[in-house]
Amino acid sequence: MNDYIPQKVKILEFYRESPDNFSIVIDFKTDHEPGQFIQVSLPGIGEAPISICSYSKDHMKLNVREIGSVTNSLGKLKEGDEIWVRGPYGKGYPMQELKGNNLLIIGGGCGVAPLKGIIDYVDQNREDYQNIDLFFGYRSVHDVLFRRETPEWKNKYNLMMSVDKAEEGDDLACFEMKTGYLMERMKELDINSENTVAFLCGPPIMINKIIGLLKEKGFKSEQIFLSAERLMQCALGMCGHCMIHGKYTCLDGPVFRWDELENFKND
C-alpha cells in the first residue's frame, strides 16, 4: 500500500466566493471528520494541504484561497477538470466527545472554511449540541465567504459577522454585518464560558488575540480548539515540516486543544 499515490477526481462544481477565493465540489467519496484535510496535487505544480469544508459521504467541498502555486493554478480550473487528491488526513474537531456543549465557532477570513465542516456536521446532528454561536470576521465586504450558505446559518444559529474595514457603498445590511475587528466586536458581547467550547480558525494574529479575550471571559485552555497551519509535504507523519514542538500537525493535528500548543508559539 503506497500512501503517496493520489487518485484522480473530477470537479463537479466550481464557483467564486470572492476575488481571491473559490469553492469547488469534487467527486471524492470518503468518510471524514470535520476539520480534517486532504492533499491536493496538480502535476508539475505541486501539492498542497486543503481543509475539507463539508460533511457528506457523497462528495467533498473545498474552499481555497489563491495564495500559492497550487492554489493559484487550481483557481484557473473549471467544472469537469480533474485534480489529484489523497487523504483525508489528520485529527478533526472532537465532535463526539463534545456532545451536550454550547458551541462557539469563531473564524477569520479563509479560516472559516474548516469551520463550515463543523456547521455541516451540526446540521446533521443538531440534537447533540446546545446553543450555537457563529462569529466570523473578514477583511472587507468583498472577502465575505459562503454567501450561499450564510442566509441559512442566519436563520438557524446566532450569527455575527464583521468586516475590518467598510467603505461607502458597501452592503453591510444584508447579513447585518458590523465594522471593526472581530475581537473588538466580540468584546461587547456577553459570552458565557460555562459548558461551552470554542472552535477557532484564522490568521495567527487574530487567533492569539481572540484566545486572550476568551481567557478574559473565563475560558480554560481545555475549552479552546483551534486548527493550525504548517508547511506540509507528506501529510503522513514523516517529512517533519509540520512539527510543532514534537507534534505532527498532519497526525496529531491540524486541530489541537489550546493547552497542547500555548507554550510553543514560535515552534
Binding site: 500559492g68 504548517r230 514560535n266 515552534d267
Partner: peptide, 25 residues
C-alpha cells in the same frame, strides 16, 4: 524555507527557534 508556507509566512523565522528545533527533535 523549511517552515515557509504559501503567502510567505515563516513559522520559525529566528535562527534560535530553528536551532532549538533541531536539538529538541
Amino acid at each position: 524555507c523549511f517552515s515557509r508556507v504559501a503567502g510567505d509566512h515563516i513559522f520559525r523565522k529566528a535562527q534560535i527557534d530553528r536551532f532549538k528545533h533541531r536539538i529538541y527533535h
